[in-house]
Design a protein around this nucleic acid. Structure first.
Ligand code: MN
Ligand code: MN
Ligand code: ZN
Ligand code: ZN
Lengths: 136, 136
DNA sequence: CACCAATCTGGACTTTGTCTAATTTCCGGA
DNA sequence: TCCGGAAATTAGACAAAGTCCAGATTGGTG
């Protein structure tokens, strides 16, 4: 699957998001790379050629994408949030030295024996993060 | 098990940490409560009666405790790190609305089917976070 | 007491993220 | 085409978490 700028408009519309120029650029940054990006990285990518998207818009847009379920948030690094264009069920492998973050398909992973939830609560998600480090 | 200030000195020594007044207070804040505390919360607790520990010392000390394996870091909230006096194997339940964080004993939880690690890497830890929300 | 190393401190600084009031863009109706 | 208003974008001020550093304090040893 190729993610072109032209595709983006449809993708945004299908998630009930009005496709503006900035939103298309931000979606394109995420989906064409299929990588985990921080707001800062999105900002840098979108403004490489010439500055055209403000910091406020980058943050607003990423939050909008999140609310609309177009992207997912990954919290592994205490200093910044990563945004993940992959919303399918998957887990993460985090290389603590380098900060590199990669996906682990949830299909083959099984988690069992979790205690029952407190009453009146529903699971919003289960995050599994494997933290790895280069062998000493 | 009761965690008194007097106990703390021994606990610190057993982790190769020179027990100073500030370090004892900070350890006591964490261990007497057995709760997940942010740096800010530790700061507030330690300085309730009268200000006696600086922000720099709180951060330095928590980092030292972390390095020495006396506490563990829990990253669930993008805005702040929590410090966990429980270093035994366990997972976390996070109530996203309230920010309440509680432990899930790892004894009965089983995680299987994880892919092999990239060569030359070792697992530093596996964090499992169950994010829950009050039912709509 | 004098010395030295370890520790602690205030406060400046950085980074990530939020907020707001003003401007720009977009679109539908006259 | 022109107009009015809603939606979106913007610059920049602001806030909060965390880092850093140079100087002061502490506590033990000779
Ligand atoms: Mn462009
Ligand atoms: Mn005290
Ligand atoms: Zn991912
Ligand atoms: Zn815990």
């Amino acid at each position: 699957m190729h993610y072109t700028r032209d595709n983006m408009a449809g993708l945004l519309r299908s998630h009930d998001i009005n496709p503006t120029h900035q939103r298309i650029e931000i979606a394109h940054a995420l989906f064409s790379r299929q990588e985990h990006l921080s707001a800062d990285q999105v900002m840098a990518i979108v403004n490489t050629r010439h500055s055209e998207t403000s910091k406020a818009t980058v943050y607003n847009t990423l939050k909008l994408f999140l609310e609309k379920g177009l992207v997912r948030e990954v919290i592994v690094d205490p200093s910044k949030v990563f945004f993940d264009p992959n919303t399918g069920p998957h887990h993460h492998l985090y290389e603590v030295d380098t900060g590199k973050l990669s996906d682990i398909d949830a299909a083959h992973v099984q988690i069992s024996g979790l205690p029952p939830l407190p009453p009146g609560m529903v699971t919003e998600g289960i995050d599994l993060i494997v933290r790895v480090r280069r062998k000493a």
